[in-house]
Simulated scan of single mutants.
Amino acid sequence: MTASQGTGLDIVPFVDLTAQYPAIQGEVDAALRDVFERCDFILGRAVEAFEGAFARFIGVEHAVGVSNGLDALCLSLRGLSIGAGDEVILPANTYIATALAVSAVGARPVLVDCDPSTFEMDVAGIEAAINRRTRAIIPVHLAGQAADMRSVMDVAQRHEVVVIEDAAQAHGTQYEGVPVGGLGAVGCFSFYPGKNLGAYGDGGMITTHDAVLAARLRQLRNYGQQVKYEHVEKGVNARLDSMQAAILNVKLRHLPAWNQAREQHAQAYLDLLDGVGDIRFQSPVANSTHVYHLFMIVSDHRDALQAHLTAAGIQTGIHYPIPIHLQSAYQDLGYGPGDFPHTEYLARRMLSLPMFPELQEHQIKRVTTAIETFFI
């Protein structure tokens, strides 16, 4: 814990990455030492081992390690031959990376508003947005909860479009008993350090049941080559490095316990904040578990509440203050204020509270007491 400058208060961090390493230091150091002794730093044995372990964890035949979550999405789109002239439907209420991947391959992102209760993409909006140019739907499993995948898959099958799961915030989430990342044509994961399964740098993964697609993805991530110096298509350098893979393989073994801790922390928040002020919560999606990458609350007094918590030494986050359709980078799509009212409503009111496996009971109580005090 550190003291906040000028206040003498101990900080309750939004995410505390330093709290986890001591518990797994021996395992991580041994895994890295193995990589250093072999010196197979690029697509080495550790990458192969982690790909196999992650594929088993998700319940798919193939997992392809890549450099980050954005590249996972980009390569998936390319692997499915989606590009110029195509349209891809995705939620307005998501991080911009989901849209950037579509733009990167030359396709057009088509945004759909969210459900005001679950915060996930509204399936009725998907149906309305489909046309002859639509090639794919990217549902985002927001904050650790699955999208309404049965409805999404039904729409996709009726219109013969593929589903690419953005599971960057949902490592270990299950929908109808099946891990997300194994429901669509591909699943895309980020291992950014703050994720439930986070690297000590950047990393990503693509999961699929399709052997032919997996082979093409492995080719695309490595300069488009099948064997060295034989390039069959124009690929990129988007490989997961061996050191990150070794670390992630260690951490994967601990992920179920860490997710369970997050669920317990979330339940404590739900119990302690029930009926406090105007606080509202993300509603459950039927048949989905929740691994609480984020614990989000909604309040009409969000900005003042955040300032109050900051003054009390409590860090918070906002996801996402400027929706994609209002970002300068996406003015070319032609959307404007009011086009996605539920997304805009949440952008002004959603606040993420501290959430990480090592969060302590007294820290949760301090957060909830401070929120109660605000509404007195």
Rank of each mutant, 00 (worst) to 15 (best):
F119C: 05
G26T: 14
D10Y: 13
C114K: 02
L80F: 03
P193T: 11
G59N: 06
G52C: 13
Y335I: 09
S190R: 02
L346H: 02
H62W: 02
T18S: 15
P341W: 12
F57E: 04
V178C: 06
L75G: 00
D29W: 09
R132F: 09
S76K: 06
A214W: 01
M296T: 02
R38A: 12
K251Q: 10
I137D: 00
N68F: 02
E344W: 14
E48R: 06
H290M: 06
A245P: 03
D16V: 09
A246V: 07
D148G: 07
D271A: 12
G277P: 07
E37C: 13
S283E: 10
F340R: 00
A215F: 12
A312F: 01
R150A: 15
T310C: 07
G198N: 08
G144A: 13
L326H: 00
G277N: 14
H209P: 09
H231L: 10
A329V: 05
E127V: 12
E160M: 08
A246E: 03
V236D: 00
L255I: 11
L73C: 01
F50A: 08
P284C: 11
E165M: 02
I96T: 14
L272E: 15
L252K: 09
L213W: 04
A245L: 08
N222R: 08
L43H: 04
A266H: 09
R216L: 11
M350R: 10
V112D: 05
Q244K: 01
D332G: 10
M350C: 14
V60C: 08
H319L: 13
H342I: 07
N259Y: 05
T289A: 10
T207S: 05
D241M: 03
T289R: 11
I324D: 05
A311F: 08
A128S: 14
E361V: 14
L111N: 01
D113H: 04
R133Y: 07
V178T: 08
R348Y: 11
H254P: 09
P323E: 14
P22Y: 12
R150N: 14
L197Q: 03
G125D: 12
A19H: 10
T173G: 05
W258P: 00
Y21N: 09
L351R: 04
A3P: 03
